[in-house]
Amino acid sequence: MRDPRIDRALGVCKKIVAVFANSWKKKKALAKAQEQLNLPQHTFITECPTRWGSRQRMIERVLEQQKAIQQVLSADRKQRHLVPTWQDIEVLESISKALGPLLEFTDALSGEQQVTVSYVKPVLSLFNSEVLAIKPDDTELTKQIKQTILDYLNEKYAADSVDKLLGLASTLDPRFKHRYNSADKIPAIESTLKAELLGMLNEEENPATSQVPTADEDQAEEEEDISEPLPAKKTKKSFGSYFKKRQSGKDSEQSTVEKEMQSYLMIPEMDSDADPLEWWKTQEVNFPRLGKLAKKYLCIPASSSPSERAFSTGGNIVTCHRAALKPEAVDRLVFLSNNLKHM
């Protein structure tokens, strides 16, 4: 949102950070003031446009060191005008109060080592009900910021295709299932899951045979055609086959799918801190087809942060001094860089 009060307060923050970053005398004076005022010995954080949360952390650090900043800058006649006014402090506190709780959620949704897509609907629900809910002690600016963020997020994830994907992922997460799906959309989600499960059953019963035959296979088929057909071996009918229930293939598939779905939904939800992938690893024996669907949907990242990190890694590898690397070598180096740091 565009607001002149916010623009001014952020401009003051950036100038303060620049002053202390470019002067060793100011750094020394800041450390002395922090010691006198019993403040943490922290340096200032510079905002980076490509690093989410850096603006919020910059604001928090300026508010934390407010008294030390005032003491150091007030002693310098040339930079005394950079001391934040009470209006600037009020604006910065309003921004920090609205954006501060979002940092932890954003970091969690941008992770690569855990399931993130199934968290989106629960997080949106939490934002609307608690985190970004309007509180009596909120300033008008804080209320405006919260409402602007909520309107943006609700509109961003309101598309039918996006909402459907998030609903499927949330349902396949044993921590949430249908808890955050609206009642009117649950039937559509379950019918989509059943359709995909039926498709899996059909593939298992009728595996694709569209592979291109090799030369040896063609020759073997020709030889089989030339040779005389062998008489079919007569199989003996077992005694138990007389009592086997006759059921159409389609009804049997539908029944199998519905039983697997209902059995999964009837199991109590697992702890929200547990790893859903570990749960599916142990329970895939009981829900083999739902387990495959869970792998399909839960592997989707909730944000583009992982791919952006890969691009950043590639930019650090392919520099002006290493511009002759072959694409295969770049792929291997990016792979090693992204995987070795997690070991």
Results as ranks from 00 to 15, higher is better:
residue 132 L to Q: 01
residue 75 A to M: 08
residue 29 A to R: 00
residue 149 I to S: 10
residue 25 K to R: 13
residue 36 Q to M: 09
residue 174 P to I: 03
residue 82 L to K: 04
residue 320 C to I: 14
residue 41 Q to L: 05
residue 303 S to F: 06
residue 69 I to E: 02
residue 268 P to S: 03
residue 79 Q to C: 15
residue 327 P to R: 11
residue 272 S to I: 08
residue 125 S to N: 10
residue 283 Q to S: 08
residue 6 I to P: 00
residue 80 R to W: 15
residue 239 F to L: 14
residue 331 D to Y: 11
residue 126 L to P: 00
residue 261 M to G: 02
residue 217 E to T: 09
residue 328 E to M: 12
residue 211 Q to C: 12
residue 281 K to L: 09
residue 203 E to Q: 09
residue 343 M to Y: 13
residue 113 Q to G: 14
residue 26 K to H: 12
residue 316 N to I: 13
residue 133 A to C: 13
residue 303 S to P: 07
residue 151 D to V: 08
residue 278 E to Y: 09
residue 241 S to H: 14
residue 70 Q to S: 10
residue 255 S to K: 12
residue 299 C to L: 15
residue 19 V to H: 01
residue 59 I to M: 03
residue 28 K to E: 07
residue 291 G to T: 06
residue 257 V to A: 06
residue 316 N to T: 11
residue 196 E to L: 10
residue 269 E to F: 15
residue 250 K to E: 14
residue 306 P to I: 07
residue 172 L to Q: 02
residue 286 N to L: 12
residue 100 G to C: 04
residue 77 R to W: 11
residue 81 H to F: 07
residue 12 V to P: 00
residue 139 T to G: 03
residue 220 A to R: 04
residue 45 I to M: 06
residue 42 H to P: 11
residue 247 Q to Y: 04
residue 60 E to H: 14
residue 226 I to L: 10
residue 47 E to V: 04
residue 249 G to P: 05
residue 148 T to P: 03
residue 126 L to W: 13
residue 15 K to Y: 10
residue 320 C to T: 15
residue 334 V to F: 04
residue 199 G to S: 06
residue 211 Q to W: 07
residue 39 L to C: 06
residue 171 T to G: 11
residue 181 N to T: 14
residue 293 L to E: 03
residue 150 L to E: 06
residue 39 L to R: 03
residue 273 D to C: 07
residue 278 E to S: 08
residue 120 V to W: 00
residue 37 L to P: 02
residue 30 L to P: 01
residue 305 S to M: 07
residue 208 A to H: 08
residue 74 S to R: 13
residue 133 A to G: 09
residue 340 L to F: 15
